[in-house]
Design a protein around this nucleic acid. Sequence first.
DNA 1: AGCACGCCGACT
DNA 2: GTCGGCGTGCTC
Length: 656
Amino acid sequence: MYCKVVFDVPLDRDFDYAVPAELENKIMPGVRVTAPFGRVLTGGMVTSVSEICTAPKGVTLKEIASVVDKRPLFGSDLFPLMRFMKAQWGGPIGQILFSLVPPQPYFKLDNAPTSVHIDIKTPSMRLTPCQETALQTVRAFAAYEFHPVLLNGPSYTGKTETVLRLAGEVLAGYGQVLITVPDIAAARQFISEAEERFGADNVFCWHSRMLLSKKKKYFSAVSNGLPCVVIATRSGALLPFKNLRLAAVLDEGDDNYKQEENKPYYHLRELLMFRAKMHGAVLLFVSATPSLELLQKVHRQEVAQLSFTQAVPGHAFTPQIKLTDKKGEKSRFLSDFLLAQLTENLQRKETSLLILNRRGYSNAYYCLNCGAYAKCKKCGAILARENTPEHGDRLVCKKCGHTETLQQECPHCHNLIFKSRGGGTQKVVTELAKFFPKAHLLRLDSDTLKTKAGQGFEALNALKSGRADIIVGTRLASGALRGAKITLAAVLDAELELDGPDFRASEKYGQMLFALRGHLSGVSDGRLIIQAADKEAYDYEHLFAGDYNAAAQSELALRESFAYPPYVHLAKMLIKAKDADVLAAETARIKRLAAPLVCQTLGPVWCAKKTDVLKKQYLLFKTDEARWLELVAALDSFVPVKKASVKLSADPYDFY
DNA sequence: AGCACGCCGACT
DNA sequence: GTCGGCGTGCTC
């Protein structure tokens, strides 16, 4: 007997092995084995078993050393899922497979508990007609074929309550539920609510940074088909569900749902469309600000839409929205209007949230007179100030690598007064402390959330309890608003990111503004202040009206006219080499390879990084639906020369 | 990814 | 003279 084995290495192929007689009845596709591989004994997974040897001639087969699992850890959808991920986003099958199944041979399944206790506590409240309709419609869909649904409507319309009720029904029927949230902070906020409702034993909180022992426990339970509600971040979509009946994606529009840092790359939305379909599960996308990609699926009737229009009782307020200059008489960061509002809020003992939109532009250079940013003359991106021993003080474009001197003329007022701004929550807090020495100030960003003792967690709690006067956060804070008790929110440097290289910047910015607006509509006298240097950089009209869908439609029209997603697919190839000639040659080869499959090629664009002997640039290909998978396959199988390396991102969210 | 082999620079 | 740098090649 022979079998093919895939190993936990970034190799895009399987290897043939002979199966010793005593292991023949234990070997089957999906079980893990150990086998001599290269010079070591290592863990792999059997992908197929055969009586005839199909190994290429000239190779001497080695034997499987041991079989690790009694039964496959993952269900029968393992290999279809692997192939789907491979086709959609590329990458070596070894890495894809072992992102679905733990590679450590000592990671074995726990036994399934013999009994489960399910006691669901549903809060008694009167449902709105929209909620009633949604419940009935989703139940009806569930009885027929796979039909994904978007639950769409502003904050406080009871979307989440609807999801929790449906989840309760599934759990009561001994089914499995997956509810995904954008990040760990959101998971933490959600978990206690879920535990109270479904019982702590039936709720699993899953994210990538958890203890292996917990991972093992939850992975086993899910694989054993135990009834449960899994509250998870993106990676929860890769769990080995046996009996998935319902999957819900909360805050669908959040860009955390795209994995692009580590392989395998995937987008949760597309992945769950595939998995829920295979399992025949109900799939719900829940958002006040859904992505344009999803809205287009709704438009094409691939996803149904249920609109939530009625606010739950006590939360139907219209917040005031005010656009101000960012230049203040008294402060570098805070307009006089904002300062006055903060003072008022402090007197009322209410909590304010300030959002600093800094996204890698901590050293932007801006006009002291009107607040405009120095921009790259080549590509229009915001320039960063950089002071290095070799080149001295200068401005660098992080998008195209172009450099300029500090002598900049303001594009608006034509003065020569630009000033460096080392923005950041810390500086804002320092500034605030001068004005409000007695106020309780907290920072909420990825830095302060890194350590358990950091004030980030205190800030998260304070958002809910109101036990802080002013919280200064980054974009991350706008995603942790569930249950927040704030009456004033301000965006400090509004349009800063709109000029970046990311064509989705405007969509993301809009989503953040609508999220803030939505949460302020839950309190009386909520106020949203937007400090903008360039009030024309974003169309605020729909925000004032509170109509996200209108904002999305005008954004979609722009995307269509400029031929950007969701109207085309994008493939990014990042090419690295030390030698400029090698880089140019490889770039040209990739261009030639892709040419027959694309409708437009953008770039190559240089990636500027200060301390790098390496040369990096990327190419962007645009193509239509028909040639998309073919293009991914072609770029994925591109083998660079020894001195170069490439990285493919299918439908990328990161641009640099 | 690991791991080994191999060919050049600065040390006992 | 050799220890060790990492470039290159291979894994059934």
